[in-house]
Simulated scan of single mutants.
Amino acid sequence: MSKLVDYLNHLDQNADASAAHAKDAHAAMTHFGLSHEEQAAIKSGNKSHVAKVAGIAEADVPSIQSTDEPR
């Protein structure tokens, strides 16, 4: 499994990680070790882009917490 998918699963399973991502997504993704390309895919919120970067089928992409728009 790709590090990108590992990160998305981590956010789904860990409330503290999800809160850290919501507070400062760039810092959280960098700390986890995601590349700039992986971070851009998550920020896009586009499942097909995430799937392409992760090398998996779009149907296998966990939910995405996009960070492009302010909350």
Rank of each mutant, 00 (worst) to 15 (best):
K3F: 05
H31R: 01
I64K: 06
A22P: 08
S2M: 04
S18P: 03
S18I: 02
T67W: 01
S2P: 09
L8G: 02
D68I: 09
L8N: 08
R71E: 03
S48C: 15
A54Q: 12
S35A: 06
R71S: 01
Q13I: 03
A25M: 12
K3L: 14
S35V: 14
Q13F: 10
T67M: 01
A20W: 05
M29R: 13
S2C: 07
E38F: 02
M29E: 15
S35G: 06
S18G: 13
S66R: 06
K43I: 10
Q13V: 14
H31L: 07
I64A: 06
H10L: 09
K23C: 12
T67A: 05
A15Q: 14
N14G: 04
N46D: 14
E69F: 12
H36L: 10
L34W: 00
Q13P: 07
L11E: 01
V61D: 13
H21R: 02
K3Q: 06
S63K: 12
G45R: 10
M1W: 07
A27V: 04
F32H: 08
L34C: 00
N9W: 10
N14Q: 02
I64W: 05
K47A: 11
L11V: 09
E58F: 08
S44L: 11
F32L: 04
A59T: 15
L34K: 00
E37K: 00
N46A: 11
H31T: 10
A54G: 09
A28M: 02
A25K: 07
V53L: 00
A59D: 10
Q65G: 12
T67I: 08
S18M: 11
D24T: 10
Q13Y: 12
S48M: 15
Q13R: 15
K3N: 09
Q65L: 13
E38C: 08
A40H: 14
I56E: 11
H31M: 01
I56T: 07
D6Y: 05
A25V: 04
Y7A: 07
T67V: 02
T67N: 13
G45A: 08
D60L: 15
K43N: 15
A20T: 09
D60K: 06
E38M: 03
Y7V: 07
